[in-house]
Amino acid sequence: MRHSNISATRGISRGAPDDLSGEGDLDVAEREDVVLAQHGDEAAFERLYRRHFPRVSRSAAWLMADADVDDVVQEVFIRVWRKLPTFAGRAPFGAWLNRVALHVILRHRRRRGHRREREAPGAPADRSSGGGLADVALAFEDAVGALPARAREVFVMYDLNGIHHDEIAVHLGIAPETSRSQLHRARMLLRRHLCEDAPR
């Protein structure tokens, strides 16, 4: 046991309370669904699935070979269902789910050995090397899919799933500086497509 610091100091912030009114991007409906699903409500879990499954599926497709995506997505949500009682609400549910999904996706990649490069036909060359880009307006997702593999992986993890460079570096077996430079490469390539796509 330790002795307290006897003083009349005040104004010390609360110990780590959760700000329930601002749980990341959770709205009230999702918060309720999380709680219901934690207590076994399958319909509530399906609502959570419907909300988050497209993102998980796209991320899996971009980070792995297409043939594995459905299996991986199934494993992600089965795992989420099983682990949901341990979700304490300290982070937004979407962020927590993204981490579970990435864990599953990356484990599949490691099991299957070196990832296969997936380059779309006519993939844009890196502008910095002086090559020209295909003069095609691609939708955002097509543009992401057309990125060089490493740049795509870093972009999907950093910009679309909120993972920091240090963690990306660990997952992909690269240096953090490499992760940062690949992010830059991805954004430089994507900006071309956005300018043509021009959603203003």
């Binding site: 046991m1 330790r2 002795h3 307290s4 610091n5 006897i6 003083s7 009349a8 100091t9 010390i12 609360r14 110990g15 780590a16």
Partner: peptide, 24 residues
């Protein structure tokens, strides 16, 4: 006791507060 918070005692006498996360 508080699981994640802190217990403080202010006053003229010296007291021993519980360890964090425990009841005392």
């Amino acid at each position: 006791g508080s699981v994640r918070g802190r217990v403080e005692v202010s006053g003229p006498a010296s007291v021993t507060v519980p360890e964090p996360g425990k009841r005392g």
